[in-house]
């Protein structure tokens, strides 16, 4: 995607989110903020996935595991009496890093569909581990007594503050991802996706680059988990179900891979559509499915591609 268009798109998307609470005020519908916070959290996760899927060619079918690790970090630390959001985020990253390092190192021995399936395998192991974890309610999950605190204050109990905190994290994640993909590291990563042999020939071993990207992606996804736990005030293994991993892939591919803002847009569209259709009809999956099929048949690059085509661009 043309960087100028991408910047404009990013500005518009983040800008619309920034004025959303205002819109909610005007419409007198504070619930809009609740929906939007959830969308933002998933957008963070989709962004994380696009970083390795779009740029590194690594299709992870297990990213929901990191959502879960982030969420359980909130549950575990809160129970231990640590309530600070910053520490919860660190906790999530501290759990996601070793998990990503170990599973990534093994998974990267494979490629293509095998990579998809081995990441799924590891996520399923994590899922079943938390299902068996009776101390945290096992499959039933745990209700959080309260949301994370900010500067020792229960600021996030206010939905609007939580919304802006999540938006800030999404923008931070976006800028970080932009920075990474624009750097030499990012170019090597893209190179290994395009042609690993050539990269090796010019002296880059793909493995450390891919693994690093995988770990960073896992950590960003864990941030989404922390925010999601705060938004629902409830944590359960259902968050790590393979369905979720699939939905994340759908969001990224729907939005168009490899341009970061597409993933954010994909999350927005997928969740809004789900929200909207499920209000219209009990049989909403039928229409959602139709939408997905039509998008794929009509466009080669998800919604981004569709927009480019309609707009007459490349």
């Amino acid at each position: 995607m043309n960087p100028r268009i991408r910047n404009i798109a990013a500005l518009v998307v983040f800008g619309s989110f920034a004025i959303l609470p205002l819109l909610a005020q005007v419409l007198g519908d504070s619930f809009l903020i609740v929906v939007a916070t959830r969308i933002l959290a998933f957008a963070i996760a989709a962004l994380a996935l696009d970083l390795i899927l779009g740029y590194g060619g690594m299709v992870s079918f297990g990213h929901a595991a990191y959502l879960g690790l982030g969420a359980y970090s909130v549950a575990m630390l809160s129970r231990a009496g640590i309530t600070d959001l910053g520490l919860h985020l660190l906790g999530g990253i501290a759990m996601a890093t070793p998990f990503a390092l170990i599973t990534g190192a093994i998974s990267l021995r494979t490629r293509g569909v095998y990579f998809i399936m081995i990441t799924l395998a590891f996520a399923q192991m994590a899922y079943f581990f938390f299902v068996s974890l009776s101390a945290y309610g096992g499959d039933d999950g745990v209700t959080l007594a309260a949301r994370s605190t900010l500067l020792g204050q229960p600021l996030l109990e206010n939905d609007t503050t939580l919304f802006y905190a999540t938006l800030a994290l999404l923008i931070a994640a976006y800028l970080l991802a932009l920075r990474i993909t624009g750097s030499r590291f990012g170019r090597v990563l893209t190179g290994t996706r395009e042609n690993p042999l050539r990269m090796q020939a010019i002296g880059f071993s793909p493995f450390p680059y891919q693994l690093t990207a995988y770990v960073i992606s896992g950590c960003i996804a864990s941030v989404a988990g922390v925010m999601l736990a705060n938004q629902t005030e409830f944590v359960s293994p259902a968050l790590m179900n393979w369905h979720r991993s699939g939905e994340l892939i759908v969001m990224v591919v729907l939005g168009g891979i490899g341009n970061l803002i597409g993933a954010v847009g994909g999350a927005v569209i997928a969740l809004l559509l789900e929200e909207w259709l499920s209000r219209m009809s009990e049989h909403w999956p039928l229409f959602f499915g139709l939408f997905l099929v039509i998008v794929v048949l009509a466009s080669r690059d998800g919604i981004s591609g569709l927009i480019r085509r309609i707009g007459g661009g490349k």
Partner: peptide, 29 residues
């Protein structure tokens, strides 16, 4: 559906068939 997807990436195939899963499951219900 499938005829139009043979020369497409795995990811597009995943997306379209994921949609089909939703459609057929709901239709069965």
């Amino acid at each position: 559906v499938f005829r139009h997807l043979y020369d497409r990436s795995h990811l597009d195939q995943v997306l379209a068939t994921f949609g089909l899963v939703m459609i057929i499951s709901e239709a069965v219900e």
